[in-house]
Design a protein around this nucleic acid. Structure first.
Length: 566
RNA sequence: UGCCCGAUCGUCUAAUGGUAGGACACCGGCCUUUGGAGCCGUAUGUGGAGGUUCGAAUCCUCCUCGGGCAGCCA
């Protein structure tokens, strides 16, 4: 039933699809739809990239086209193979396939060089020998035109010779650059004779030391799209001003012209999306690597227990438009809860245990109680949970002096133990020196066993529990948002580091889990009933010493009411 | 004060000249052996002023506000 509904769901349209459908009607690209996802391998992919990946691969899938993976590796000083590998792993995990179309801008270095020669021969590019500072000075500002370089009118022959020597390594870094000759007074800064090649005596992660001149992104990007015969080149808003430049390059070289379409990148509140800032968090040790479960990277969400489906659904639900946007993180959380609610095995786990002794329960008796694996999906079956005289319950599920609407355990009150009996708290045992509650003495009502139908007794609360002698002990890590400010990177006066939430990680040791979990494997996801969704950590969990990450809490309306009271 | 882009519930996003709808969040109720899930419901929006039109979120003009652009980064 639910499946059918999913299949019938009409995917929301967006302005990019409208453009594509129009192009399909007019036959602009002969019915082809070719997109590409063009990451720079200088960091790990984050949730913002996921939006772009889902968009580009999604469009290709929907219109029976293809989507290329192309690494924009034009800056050897920042790019590394480690990032290439992580990017490929993340895209695969997300569920997309570029088949054999794994490309690199560096694959086109020879072609790009030839294109530059074409421009020089047409008198549309020149070697500038000004310093970086001089070029900056002469570029002007947006409201004031720039001035032309004294080297702007070198002859074609001189330019060809110089450019050849740049390539051959006759010059040091920064001595010369190749510039397009366009218009130093253009109101569009990108058209003020943009630099297209710079000298960089640096090893490239793929081409090694073969080159000492590297194309600028602007020179490489549009032509790479052209070489790959991309039809719809989808990028973010900040490249809108670059489009006239890309079109100028394509037209003056005289090659196939893709169509660039810009959309607004994803922003999430309480989240940093800048790769530069994420790198700082990693390098300065504020987090435990790019895959620290508090990071907004795909590898972190994966480790935290997010499913690829939930990320894809999220990417679909945020929509695609041109206005700047800030998505509420609660939408992301909704997306993973929604998915895991349908899929996750339910289990009982006591995170902060307090001992409960059922005084009227036979000392050595053990009962195997029947439990449902997932109330949302009967096909997931049932399991047995052992019950005995000594149990653990959650410390939070007992209040010595209960609130008016506290439905759980308190002195003299009754509560249902999930899948088991109704118990009553008879006595509170405290540590004589510290006053801390160390044990609860309770009695159970044998007529109230779950499913027995022998009792008409009703209680308002049901709590989870674990049999002490059967319990598996584990470590559980609770995560909260990494930043306590809705726009941690938004204020230029304040370092975003100051907005780090000091309580973003809480590590709990000695947590008690039902024995079913002893067989759990790294990556396995569960719902700990009444607490949230958790998964076995893939980095630190070992057989016999399990470590769980909390993916997300259950929506807790009681906690919300409590919070509102304060 | 140059150029480009944008402006619809709190947050996103639909409407393509014809009843402003959906999602998340919020608030209320029902249900519940997870204070989960589910179900039902309430409330909340076209930045402003003119104009065109029988009719404007949509088209036009002006204004206002927000974003982007001054790397040999991408």
């Amino acid at each position: 039933m639910k499946e059918e509904n999913n299949n019938n769901t009409i995917k929301p349209g967006n302005f990019i699809k409208e453009i594509i459908e129009k192009d399909l009607e007019t036959g602009k690209y002969g019915g082809r739809v070719f997109t590409r996802f063009p990451p720079e391998p200088n960091g790990y992919l984050h949730i913002g990239h996921a939006k772009s990946i889902c968009l580009n691969f999604g469009l290709a899938n929907e219109y029976k086209g293809k989507c290329n993976l192309r690494f924009d590796d034009t800056n050897p000083t920042k790019e590394e193979q480690e990032y290439v590998d992580s990017i490929k792993a993340d895209i695969k995990w997300l569920g997309f396939d570029w088949e054999d179309r794994e490309f690199y801008a560096s694959d086109y270095f020879d072609q790009l060089y030839e294109y530059a020669v074409i421009l020089i021969k047409k008198g549309k590019a020149y070697v500038d020998s000004c310093s970086s500072d001089e070029i900056k000075e002469m570029r002007g500002v947006p409201t004031k035109p720039g001035v032309e370089s004294p080297f702007r009118n070198r002859t074609v022959e001189e330019n060809l010779d110089l450019f050849e020597k740049m390539k051959s390594g006759n010059f040091k870094d920064g001595e010369h650059v190749l510039r397009a000759k366009i218009d130093m007074s253009s109101p569009n800064m990108n058209m003020r004779d943009p630099i297209i090649y710079r000298i960089r005596h640096a090893s490239h992660h793929r081409t090694g030391d073969r080159w000492c001149i590297y194309p600028m992104y602007d020179w490489a990007h549009g032509q790479s799209d052209s070489i790959e015969r991309i039809t719809h080149s989808i990028c973010t808003l900040e490249f809108e001003n670059h489009r006239p430049l890309y079109d100028w390059f394509i037209e003056n070289i005289g090659i196939y012209s893709p169509q660039q379409i810009e959309f607004a990148r994803l922003n999430l509140n309480y989240t940093i999306m800048s790769k530069r800032k994420l790198l700082k968090l990693v390098q300065d040790g504020y987090v435990d690597g790019w895959d620290d479960p508090r990071m907004p990277t795909l590898s972190a969400y994966r480790r935290r227990g997010y499913t690829p489906e939930s990320i894809r659904n999220f990417a679909e639900s945020v929509g695609v438009a041109k206005r700047d946007n800030v998505i509420d993180v609660s939408l992301l959380e909704y997306s993973i809860r929604d998915d895991l609610n349908k899929k996750a095995q339910r289990v009982m786990a006591v995170l902060r245990p307090i001992k409960v002794v059922i005084t009227n329960y036979p000392d050595e008796q053990v009962e195997e109680l029947d439990a449902v694996n997932n109330p949302e999906d009967e096909s997931m079956g049932r399991r047995k949970v052992p019950f005995s005289k000594i149990l653990f319950i959650e410390r939070d599920d007992f209040q010595e002096i209960p609130h008016k609407k506290f439905f759980r355990l308190s002195p003299g009150s009754e509560v249902r133990l999930r899948y088991a009996y109704i118990i009553k708290c008879e006595e509170v045992i405290k540590d004589s020196s510290s006053g801390e509650i160390i044990e609860l003495k309770c009695t159970y009502d044998p007529d109230t066993r779950s499913g027995s139908g022998t009792s008409t007794k009703k209680v308002k609360g049901t709590i989870h529990w674990v049999s002490a002698r059967h319990a598996v002990t584990a470590e559980v890590r609770l995560y909260d948002r990494l930043f306590n400010h809705p726009d941690p990177g938004g204020d230029k006066e304040t370092d975003f580091i100051e907005h780090i939430n000091p309580d973003s990680l809480e590590t709990l040791k000695g947590c008690k889990l039902e024995p079913f979990l002893s067989a759990a494997n790294p990556g396995d996801r569960f719902q700990f009933e009444r607490l949230g969704y958790f998964c076995v950590d893939t980095k630190y969990s070992k057989p016999g010493s399990l470590v769980f990450n909390r993916t997300v809490t259950l929506k807790d309306t009681w906690a919300k009411i409590e919070k509102a009271k304060q």
